[in-house]
Amino acid sequence: MAASSMKMHKITHTAAFWGFVAPSVVLFTIFFLIPLVLSIAFSFTNFDGWKTMDFVGLANFAELFRDKNFYGALGRTFVYTLFSLPFKVIIPLLIAALLCSDRVRFKSFSRTLVYIPVLLSSLVVGITINWMFSAEYGLVNFLITSAGGKALDWALNPYLATFVISFASNWASTGFYMIIFIGGIKSISNDIYEAASIDGCTSKQTFLKITIPMLAPTTFLAVLLATVNLLKEYALVQGITQGGPGIKTVFIIQYIFDKGFNSMQYGYASAISFIVMIIFALIAYVQFRFSNNGGEN
């Protein structure tokens, strides 16, 4: 009788487990696993998105490794990510620390203000940034020339164009990472701060010696998310520079999109996606190892 009850209990637990997990599994399978498997399968074909789909073996991969534009787009993506990542993490961290301080007033209002750009679509962000940085009619150039300066070539200088995209990306995401950091700061025990205060620590020392080390798992999460999002930057590029000047701001996702949807080379685009996915996964793995398994150890 006891054994039967135990067995029933186990079955109920198992059913409950699968019941709760099933929605996620179903959604994950439909929106991630199936597209992933299809994409890998397409990478071995010359699929044109319509009716042509012949098996071509490794031809797409062979072409990919000869494609200098692929290396160019990938290289630009890495440079852009390395350039933008510190700002993506440090600015929200500082804002979060500021907005958690007892000395600051209107905290909720300020947090809302910083968070609002997160709610905007990339299209709206692109339009806003274009309005600010347009070479001809932009606000920034207007202010520069009004002050007697020389208008900057935002659209012609590749460094300035990359900066504008990075600026837009940071502006649009600071609120998101700020919320993550605020959660992390709030989870640090007050006892530690009180002890530090009794020991005579200055605010700077408290921030550097307590807040930052205690935020290691949160920082890892922010760095990982920011890295992946930067590597996948697409909509802002399309809305601001469309890859120009020349092809100087064509990043890897835009390149994949262009090959797939504009040139109808879905098979080739899938092959690029597959290789890029492996590269991105390796980057995430290295980050994970370097941060002691995300701060767990």
Partner: peptide
Amino acid sequence: MPKAIWAGGTTD
């Protein structure tokens, strides 16, 4: 000409 148009760096 406005070079940015044909250099491809603007949506203008």
